[in-house]
Design a protein around this nucleic acid. Structure first.
Lengths: 204, 204
DNA sequence: GATAACTTGAACACGACTGTACGAGTTTTC
DNA sequence: GAAAACTCGTACAGTCGTGTTCAAGTTATC
């Protein structure tokens, strides 16, 4: 980002060190902020294994750091979504989306929650909407095709969907369910949540 | 709580005023803490319409205030649950529980989240477990009877259940769905979440 | 060995919040 | 009118987090 493109032939190694530190800081900040949105800069620096002043060398203010964490998380989420084909049957698309990216969504949500107090809510909403739009489009298409229930606003269904993904991931972290794949379970529950009252929920 | 039982025949009205203030403080604190777990005492006092010093007159420390809020919320939740008959068919009991108390659960969760940082986590867990046990017992009974799926730990199912209630209430607050009763919707979704993969979900 | 990039601790100013002390005011009951 | 209970503003000390400055390191490249 702030790395100048003209590298004066000399200090490649030093530069590499610095970039490693930046990565370590971003990793630590992501973990810390998810755990507690009000972590101090000192704690983040300690968790990253660098000095507090070093951290300030890379990020002028706390807001800068949070913004960088947010940007990286969003790009991760976008990358995860970009490879998916969500064009076919809404239920199948829902399954694809959920099974492949519920972990990403959880991380995304955690960082967003931490950042929403730090930066302006509008700043967050802009970033959030990009991700939300993908889920929202799927839900709306399903509603238009009559596959998903239309008696509730799409925003509600999206909220339920994201919240359930979040709950699954949170419990995975907490318990010893690391190996368990929450995908099928989530799909079953979400299909019930999104399809109209009269319809039956497929097995699995 | 700290009100002495020997009322010296005199200052009933003053006492009543004070108790009204305490109620106002607790109400304001509940609202404020749910909105932002890090509200300052000054902000809470302002929202309650009393001076900061008055608030300190009733609650020695911040922890005292949070503890009082927590205690009141828990007693509310217990009162809401006490009237329910959850003995029959687990699915019917689930419906009863959800339709009648999802709002309470949401409030309970919000306050708990705010308090968990303030007081020790053990202190919270003690209080939390009382509520959780009621939901957990229902889930475990359902699992024992084979009505709820047994291939996932009960804690997971409880988490999903509470999280979904939370999502419903949050969206109700945010949107213009005040009049909408999320009960039937929640029941349908939760039955799908709790029953075994092979079973079909009842209509509604 | 000189240089340049990077790291780091100590120290500081600043602001926000907590909790306390003092002193003055209000309202009700007697 | 006096006393008791309660309210409340000002002011202060202590703590904690932020962001900056300075001065002294380390490490790799030349």
């Amino acid at each position: 980002m702030a790395v100048s493109e003209s590298t004066p032939t000399g200090q490649r190694a030093r530069r590499a060190d610095a970039r490693r530190n930046v990565e370590a800081i971003l990793d630590a900040a992501t973990r810390s902020l998810r755990r507690n949105p009000d972590v101090s800069i000192a704690d983040i620096a300690a968790e990253a294994g660098v000095g507090r002043i070093t951290l300030y060398g890379h990020f002028k203010t706390r807001a800068d750091l949070v913004e960088a964490v947010l940007a990286r998380t969003i790009s991760h989420a976008n990358a995860a979504f970009d490879g998916l084909d969500l064009s076919g049957d809404p239920v199948r698309a829902l399954a694809t989306l959920v099974t492949s990216s519920w972990r990403i969504v959880e991380q995304h949500r955690g960082v967003l929650g931490a950042a929403s107090r730090e930066l302006g809510h509008e700043r967050i909403r802009d970033a959030h909407d990009d991700i939300l739009a993908r889920v929202g489009q799927l839900v709306e298409r399903g509603q238009a095709e009559g596959v998903f229930r239309g008696d509730l606003p799409g925003s509600w269904l999206v909220t339920v969907m994201l919240t359930l993904m979040h709950a699954a991931a949170e419990d995975v972290d907490a318990d010893r369910l690391d190996a368990f794949d929450a995908g099928p379970y989530l799909v079953r529950t979400l299909v019930a949540a999104l399809t109209p009252p009269g319809s039956t929920v497929p097995v699995r």
